[in-house]
Design a protein around this nucleic acid. Structure first.
Lengths: 263, 263
DNA sequence: ATTACACTTCGGTGAGCGCCGAATCGTCCG
DNA sequence: CGGACGATTCGGCGCTCACCGAAGTGTAAT
């Protein structure tokens, strides 16, 4: 990594942590990244509206985020489609959010309150389940001896058998071939939910079996009647995490952060 | 998480990713955090000198970092001792550094060049081994079937046996009790080295057996003669990662970043 | 006591950057 | 072809904040 140039000056390369952090140090850019943590693809205009800034401002932010390697883009016609660069990015963002301090925000409308409630209840976190439901899943699996947590997390033999019985492929069929489990710190509850390959497989299976359904736009999940039965039967999840969101049904709007300008 | 206040205004709490990132978005504060990634404890004055700023400036930065929960402090007499808040913090910082873009820096002295070379060769990363040596260890273990990497990393049965034969406690003695392995992205090589409980146990064992020794101040490691023999015997590590740093021995100075003021 | 030292507080300065609106570019649709 | 629309560029405004030095506080050493 150390190079001597022709003029006998030497330079080296150092990872520029401050430059990367500066990308996330702005509220608008952070909101954009958190929005994209749903694992989906948003257009520039959607992100601008979500973040509550003018389209021109959003363009500048998106340029920076793409140039910095946090976001990937795809241009289709006059649209610009954005998503997170990859799983590594998503995971680091989640961990960072779990370490971040809380900030009080004002709730401006009933729709926003409902949306937020739904987010806390169950949502996607890139490729797995987060929110109260995600945390409850991880904790129930631990209580039933399917997971072991001590200085990390591991799937037990019983856990592997449980997944296999449910028909969830988890890639851990031999001692030399163990399933990849991780946890990530849930922003809303500060407790851990399941991620890694097992977390992703569980999410895909739950979607396929229609235990949960995903709101058309956004990252909100709802537990179906079949899901309530399955989660209760398989893991004995308590009723409160299986109940639908207490107020109105999850709204598909994207007013997740408080805009700094009143319209 | 949603509360209705007495005056019927509602607020909620959201993790403030931008606030946390802002702490790391400054070069000086980032340098301080990276310095503390050696897992040790530094005084405020040492950090000020390392970062190349006045003591008063360092005080302000340290106040922010402690208030933000990234650093822990201990006041002893007129000194202020700083360290990273915990393993979670260290791990997230490492991952972030692995995602960060590179920045060219000038090398100002031979001592600095040697120091940097030594850092690239072998260093601590909080509680495990990083640098070329750390990456080589992880890769050799994978080649020999002690680790399996696919969408994560896991210790194989052979890997558990290998650790046991070496007398390295790794806490994975039953199927319900598996060893905790992780990898983290090495800043210098962009490849992965071993962390998690197994990475930490390996590091502790190598120190105890004097396969490696730690420079008094800083995070530089040197491979001993015994270490060369052991790493070659146990894992067939190539000579180049076992050789001592090619130039002068690792200097204990802390000129790791380029100061912005020549004073 | 006196001196030395580690750290802190405070005031002032300068640079960086996030924001918008207006104008423009390019694509899609009627 | 013309109008609508999504995205971009640019100029200018205002705020935030990292920096230093000088003075101050409290602890340790003589």
């Amino acid at each position: 990594m150390i190079r001597w140039d022709a003029d006998h000056e030497s330079t080296a390369e150092t990872p520029d942590l401050a430059a990367l952090a500066a990308l996330l140090a702005d509220r608008t850019r952070a909101a954009i990244c958190i929005a994209l943590l749903d694992g989906g693809t948003w257009t520039a205009g959607e992100l601008a509206e979500y973040a509550g800034v003018a389209p021109s401002t959003a363009t500048e932010h998106l340029n920076l985020l793409v140039a910095g390697g946090l976001l990937a883009e795809e241009r289709r016609g006059r649209r610009r489609h954005l998503r997170l660069a990859g799983p590594d990015t998503a995971e680091t963002l989640e961990n960072l959010a779990g370490l971040a301090p809380y900030r009080r925000v004002r709730i401006r409308s009933l729709a926003e309150a409902n949306h937020r409630r739904a987010l806390h209840h169950a949502r996607t976190c890139y490729d797995h389940i987060a929110g109260a439901l995600g945390v409850a899943l991880a904790e129930a699996m631990t209580e039933r001896g399917l997971l072991v947590r001590e200085n990390g997390v591991e799937l037990t033999g019983a856990g592997a058998a449980w997944l296999a019985a449910l028909g969830i492929p988890h890639g851990g069929h031999s001692p030399a071939h163990r399933a990849h489990v991780r946890t990530c710190l849930d922003w809303t509850s500060r407790r851990r939910h399941l991620s890694g390959a097992v977390g992703a497989a569980l999410y895909r299976h739950a979607l396929e079996q229609r235990w949960i359904i995903k709101a058309p736009a956004g990252r909100i999940l709802a537990v179906t009647e079949a899901g309530r039965a399955a989660f209760q039967r398989e893991l004995g999840l308590p009723a409160e995490v299986l109940a639908p969101a207490p107020a109105a049904p999850p709204a598909p709007d994207r007013t997740d952060i408080t805009p700094r300008r009143p319209g």
